[in-house]
């Protein structure tokens, strides 16, 4: 799997993401800097990692979404490349309009940092096919702005099209309809607040995140085969 991890000033989960992808795919991802204006290859996966890009100035993800590299990421998304945005990466993808809605300050004001149970809502996307619909998995969250907001009509559309990927069992941040992760209309962009890259080996306390990356590899092999 040819992949890339984008690093912005203030990203802090880029290394974790790269380590997780290499562990599961066997190939180290390219590391791409925010100021790069183009992606040097056609990647199978582009990961937009967590952190506090640009110090969360203006709004979480707002500055990163307008950085030079994101124009290339948007183009890649339009061409069908798998794009995974985790935590700040999810915020960046909504700010870049690759995903609908916005991520607001947690309704309880507090930064939430703990392992949370999620329900898998969609098991037929390229990110989730190794899970089972309705399955409960444990993935850590660590965020201040994870309160997913979208208009009622957008929420209905997301639900109707099966684009809610994951839902919180317990609503930890005030998200509309307990939404933890959503897919784009074409299904090749996933944004989620929980960190799958932080649960890929037992040493981290769990491995439920690993199957997200395994799903991507499975899809890739099926497409190639």
């Amino acid at each position: 799997m040819k992949s890339a991890v984008i690093t912005f000033p203030g990203s802090n989960c880029d290394r974790d993401m790269a380590v997780a992808i290499e562990k599961i795919s066997g190939h180290a991802p390219a590391r791409v800097w925010h100021g790069d204006t183009s992606l040097s290859e056609n990647y199978d996966l582009i990961a937009v990692p967590g952190g506090f890009s640009y110090g969360d100035y203006l709004r979480s993800g707002a500055m990163a979404a307008r950085s030079p590299i994101m124009q290339s990421v948007v183009k890649a998304a339009e061409n069908g490349t798998a794009i995974l945005g985790v935590c700040n990466g999810f915020q960046i993808l909504t700010e870049a309009l690759l995903l609908p809605g916005a991520l607001m300050r947690n309704s309880g004001i507090d930064f939430v940092c703990r392992e949370v149970p999620l329900i898998v809502e969609n098991d037929n996307s390229q990110f989730t096919s190794a899970y089972e619909k309705g399955e409960e998995i444990i993935i850590p969250v660590a965020h201040h702005d994870g309160n997913y907001f979208a208009s009622e009509s957008e929420l209905d559309q997301l639900e109707g099209e099966g684009r809610v990927a994951f839902r919180y069992v317990e609503n930890v941040n005030g998200s509309a309809r307990n939404i933890a992760g959503i897919l784009s209309a074409k299904g090749n962009v996933l944004g989620m607040m929980p960190h799958p890259e932080r649960h890929v080996e037992e040493l981290q306390g769990g491995t439920d995140g690993a199957r997200l990356f395994e799903s991507l590899i499975k899809t890739l092999l099926e497409t190639a085969g």
Partner: peptide, 8 residues
């Protein structure tokens, strides 16, 4: 385009 997020 930048200063406000028109969603919210």
């Amino acid at each position: 385009k930048l200063l406000a997020n028109m969603v919210i």
